[in-house]
Design a protein around this nucleic acid. Sequence first.
DNA 1: TCGTGTCAAGATCTT
DNA 2: AAGATCTTGACACGA
Length: 323
Amino acid sequence: MIFRLGYVAMTLNLEKCSPSGTVTVTVFNKLPSEEARMYRLRKITRSNLENTLRILRYNQALNIKVYRFTSKLIPLATHPSIEHWDYVSDFKDEFREIGDFVKENNFRVSAHPDHYTLINSPDAKVIEDSIKDLDYHVKIYEAMGLEDYKYKLVMHVGGLYKQKKASIERFKENFVKLPERIRNRIILENDDKSYSALDVLGICKELNIPMVIDIHHHNCVNNGEKLEDLLPEVFDTWNNQEFVPKIHFSSPKSEKDFRSHADSIEFGEFEEFLKVARKVGRDFDTMLEAKNKDSALLKLSEELREVEWVNEINQAEFEITEG
DNA sequence: TCGTGTCAAGATCTT
DNA sequence: AAGATCTTGACACGA
């Protein structure tokens, strides 16, 4: 069993390296001319793309192969103010360079449209905007030349709207209507309030969608289901996929503020999870969601290296190499 | 330059 | 029915 670790969007260990620069709508609209507005958008976008490539190079140096792109690569991407802007053409080379680097170095990259993107809303306008946002994410992959559907978009089921069953049905109806190039990218994650791992597993099995189980969310919402019972079936949803199963892992900030993410990953909790995963015996990847981003990853990987049984099962896929 | 209130977006809880 | 809260990194503005 090999497992790898990844992190989300930004590194704490490179100076001035945000991939998520943006501009507020108010300020953007106050800029004096079309030229000024385009200049601002291009400047931010260039910086975001450059920083993304810097982060990937850094990841490569540390052999961190699992990474989630920020959703904010293009400022105001799906806002009506910039609908006319063809950012893909403007930054053709930059996108391509990122995608080439991903492919050359066998990264597993992903993206996670944020919680405003809901395909089970009863509101047609919300659905429309959500599809626009999904389309934006896929466009980014395509611009990078990451045409392979193995590069995924993680989503949640959506809102409850006081009727869980009907809301799940609406998810299914809208999901199957999505264009193929979007639909085949989507994978589903259990959330920390509404849809449990068991709920999501049911949807995933029915619609043949790979499932990402978020261990922390499972601890927030469940009806007594045991992780060890769920995990084999969750991993099975990946059987026809190129990449191995992926999970999300984070530690609660505190007992009182349980749902929030802590700065780091609590080692003991991760070790407990590994013991459950070992029983399943499959390779998998872990996306860590901690405030300390890659610093939390490096800390955890240090701690894991101290544990003999872990070293025996893992082939040091996340080993630090000097670079 | 620094600290802090604010920010595109939806859902849901509180009043 | 309207307003607050969720959650988050980064902006934007004023001191």
